[in-house]
Design a protein around this nucleic acid. Structure first.
Length: 288
DNA sequence: TACTTCGGACGATCAATTAT
DNA sequence: TAATTGATCGTCCGAAGTAA
């Protein structure tokens, strides 16, 4: 397992996306420039399309579930927190959708000496200040510590700060402290439903998921149905039910046999279906 | 064209270490 | 004791390969 260290961020609780291109993914209808910002929900997009034509494309953080189900883990595909997860539901193996077991972390590993925290070139403020791209620095008097690591400074957009629902409002500065600098958002992505076909795994990272409507200035995409996993169990289609149109108006599962796989019945007479891949992989555990 | 496979980039976690 | 660092481990993106 390769391991290239990334910057650990705080554990934010909302999905994050970017618009990285993918052959498998469907791009949102609206071009979005997302940036990573530690205090910013990653599905927020602080700049409108074209507002920063010369700005480098900065990839937002990838949101991961805390614990993928065993099926998604084996397939190295995106999982979600629901059980059964969307992917398992889609493939009709919701009953097999269980959390994977995590290995216990090794203890007693000795480490070398840590970098000294001497306040010179080792303090966060200095590093952040250095990280501000040339020509996009903070205005004089703006405390560097309040600069989001990858958030270049731009002037206020001229709109009131929006309220994001599940996110707390920006806290007022305490006496004696410099106010934190928060970007002003004025535009939200309008999620676009993914197309039928593909397994939808590419949704995420580059794709806003339709259940999140964070912003205030653009009417959100109207969802004709709740996401499948939000339906009450007796309404939620699964492998035992005939498939109707999915939450976005197109069938989600099961895949047709031509996709590779088989439809059958289990011992209890329930309809089952699995791709060849699933059948193969059920016996193949990744080595951890 | 659709689907599968899998290498590796990236994120999350938490024990070890250092500062207060 | 709190804060910080950094290694480990898990997730899942996305390119390449394969099948229909």
């Amino acid at each position: 397992m390769a391991s290239v260290r990334g910057q650990s961020g705080e554990a934010d609780e909302e999905p994050q996306h970017d618009n990285s291109p993918s052959a498998d993914s469907v791009q949102p209808q609206m071009t979005m420039h997302s940036v990573s910002y530690s205090s910013m929900p990653m599905h927020m997009y602080p700049f409108a399309p074209g507002m920063m034509p010369n700005a480098p494309q900065i990839r937002s953080k990838r949101r991961q579930v805390k614990n993928a189900c065993t099926n998604c883990q084996k397939a190295c595909k995106k999982c979600d927190d629901a059980r059964p997860c969307l992917r398992c539901v889609k493939y009709g193996i919701g009953e097999e959708c269980v959390d994977s077991q995590r290995k216990e972390r090794k203890k007693g590993i000795k480490r070398g000496p840590y970098k000294k925290r001497d306040g010179k070139n080792n303090n966060v403020e200095q590093q952040l200040d250095n990280a501000v791209p040339h020509g996009m620095g903070m205005p004089p008097g703006m405390p560097p510590a309040s600069v989001p690591p990858t958030m270049p400074y731009m002037g206020q957009m001229g709109y009131p700060p929006p309220y994001y629902g599940q996110y707390p409002a920006v806290p007022p500065p305490k006496p004696g402290e410099a106010p934190a600098y928060y970007p002003q958002f004025y535009l939200a992505p309008v999620p676009h439903p993914p197309p039928p076909g593909q397994d939808g795994d590419a949704v995420g990272y580059g794709q806003p998921q339709p259940q999140y409507y964070p912003a205030t200035f653009i009417a959100p995409y109207a969802q004709p149905y709740p996401p499948t996993y939000m339906m009450p169990p007796h309404h939620r289609p699964d492998a035992q039910m005939a498939m109707h149109n999915g939450p976005y108006g197109y069938p989600m599962y099961p895949k047709p046999p031509s996709a590779g796989g088989s439809i059958g019945r289990d011992g209890a007479g329930r309809v089952t279906w699995a791709t060849d891949e699933m059948t193969r992989r059920r016996g193949r555990a990744r080595e951890f």
